[in-house]
């Protein structure tokens, strides 16, 4: 089983961080994992992105053409990656900044007002964790707790004061998706 997550948005929206949080959580869960950022000319205009691959086998390529999951934070990234999500895959996107909708019926769509939800929590910088919480609730390949632990043990090990906000943001994204799922039933 292999999952490929692309996280894409503006520089500063925490897309690389979100991909790394996922990568650390997967590593601690004993999975094979790779993380690779876009570092080419594309990061100089509009979209910064990274790909996190999580697998039960040795990972050959950290680069993928058709990711199985996409976390999309802004319009240029939506335009670039919405068509690339693999059939059967999942697209979570930030409706606070993206007015388009996808016409694709072969993928699962998770529209989340992530920046608005993060702003209500008092910190728009938590957009990334809201969207990640939403993604992992719609597509539970790892428990949210694994991401929280990874933040505590790795990415925020030297900044524990930021843990609580990140945890709340993950929970907020998760709660939004649970409500959406409940309404759909």
């Amino acid at each position: 089983m292999q999952e490929e997550f692309v996280c894409a948005g503006f520089g500063g929206q925490g897309v690389l961080f979100a991909g790394q949080a996922l990568a650390y959580a997967a590593m601690d869960a004993g999975r094979s994992v790779t993380w690779i950022p876009s570092y080419g000319p594309e990061m100089r205009g509009g979209t910064a992105y990274c790909v996190t691959v999580i697998s039960d086998q040795i990972i050959g390529s950290p680069v993928v053409r058709q990711p199985s999951a996409a976390l999309i934070f802004n319009i240029p990234s939506f335009d670039k990656f919405e068509p690339l999500v693999a059939p059967g895959g999942i697209l979570a996107y930030n409706t606070s900044l993206i007015s388009q909708t996808s016409q694709r019926i072969d993928i699962t769509q998770v529209p989340v007002p992530a920046t608005d939800l993060a702003t209500m929590l008092g910190d728009a910088r938590m957009t990334n964790m809201v969207l990640l919480g939403a993604m992992l609730t719609a597509h539970p390949i790892l428990p949210l707790q694994a991401v929280e632990d990874a933040l505590r043990d790795h990415l925020l090990a030297k900044r524990p004061e930021r843990l609580e906000n990140n945890r709340l943001a993950l929970a907020q994204g998760a709660e939004f998706v649970r409500q959406m799922q409940a309404e759909a039933v």
Partner: peptide, 10 residues
């Protein structure tokens, strides 16, 4: 190469 240089792996 750039891929080995830029990627993160355990």
């Amino acid at each position: 190469d750039g891929m080995i240089g830029q990627m993160m792996e355990p």
